[in-house]
């Protein structure tokens, strides 16, 4: 399974998301987006090693808007 990173808004939201996912049993880490789109610019993503559909619900329930998912590729 390819490694996925969840794009959220600011760094602080990424940290909040990481902590919430961690509390919900996910192995979540903060890292830079290794493949930002040209017009998007840089940012942070939450890399979740055991990502599933439920983790997106957890984030949404806690007020964190998911802005996309990125393939981490060889960055990790």
């Amino acid at each position: 399974m390819s490694k996925k990173g969840i794009k959220v808004g600011s760094l602080t939201y990424a940290m909040k998301g990481r902590d919430i996912l961690y509390k919900n049993g996910y192995k979540a880490y903060l890292t830079r987006n290794p493949h930002p789109f040209e017009d998007e610019g840089c940012g942070y993503v939450i890399y979740v090693s055991n990502i599933d559909k439920k983790c997106f619900e957890v984030l949404k329930r806690n007020g964190i808007t998911v802005k996309g998912v990125v393939d981490m590729g060889d960055a990790l």
Binding site: G9, S10, L11, T12, E38, D39, G41, C42, G43, Y44
Partner: peptide
């Protein structure tokens, strides 16, 4: 430190 190609200030708090 984020959205560098956004020439306006990003809207998310606190940054």
């Amino acid at each position: 430190g984020s959205e560098s190609f956004n020439l306006l200030q990003p809207r998310d708090y606190p940054e």
